[in-house]
Amino acid sequence: MNYLKRYFLVLLLLFGLTAFLWAKQREMTISVILPYKSGPYNLALEGFKKFWAEQEVNIRLLEHNLAKEPMPELVFKEIEDKKTDIVLTIGSKATHFANKDIKNIPVVFSMILTPVTGTNITGVSLNIPSSIKINYLKKILPNAKRIGVLYSSKTEEKIKELSFACAKMKLQLIAEKVESAKDFPTHLKKISPQIDCFWMIPDSEIFSPQAVKHLLIESIRNKFPVMGLSYSYVKAGALFSLDGDYEDLGEQAGMLILRILSGEKVSRLPPEPPRKINLFLNQIVAEKIGIEIPAKVIQEATSVIKK
């Protein structure tokens, strides 16, 4: 059995090597679909291109900006006509768009929060696992015990996962379900005296810009730190945020595509969380709400907003 295993492994390696060499020699066509070229999406695309520039593989990159396509439905016909080997989607719109219509060509997604699963689709999500976030939270706010969170019915599942993670890390999660955006101030007012930190979850039902503004004003007023969804929230008044590195996310997606092109089966490649995480801190807010961030954490941070 061991021999047979070894034989198969050797055969597989030989096959993979052959395929790799084949693939390396042959010009590969990769179609990139993105909803529009904004800052983060563009960074991811740049990271992806940078990855391929470093590889000794002959590829042809076809970009499809949906915002600029007069008829988006014709994009897939073009992908097929151009004999695309693999598709990269950036953002949820492009991913859902591709997942709906492309069945025969492998699809790698990137820059989406909730991973999509299927036989021909895998990718890199934006979602940083709650355990990693809690670890960072504990390093930044060692004394925090009670974590506040507001959610809607849309994000109930995430709350469960979070609740499990908090319990695991011996933290108390104080979660309040908000029925409508109108109720957000009431619920925030309710939980804010009880919590040591407010944990923002990506829920567009409740986190309107006005709600976020109100949240951040209240955080300063009632002196509770907020863990923001990204660096832009830290700039607006959140104490810290943990972001995936958008350029590295592009590179990470490129690596997945290389593996697929090398012969690995898509179905065997599960969606990956971001491999590189950026920590952003707002020291001004820390001072306002009377929190002293450990110096070691400040050193580790990707960027610190200071006076």
Binding site: L113, L126, P209, L229
Partner: peptide, 15 residues
Amino acid sequence: YQPEYKGDEELILAS
């Protein structure tokens, strides 16, 4: 001003 978020990730990407 109501932002039209097509996905929750846009909250993170702020776009």
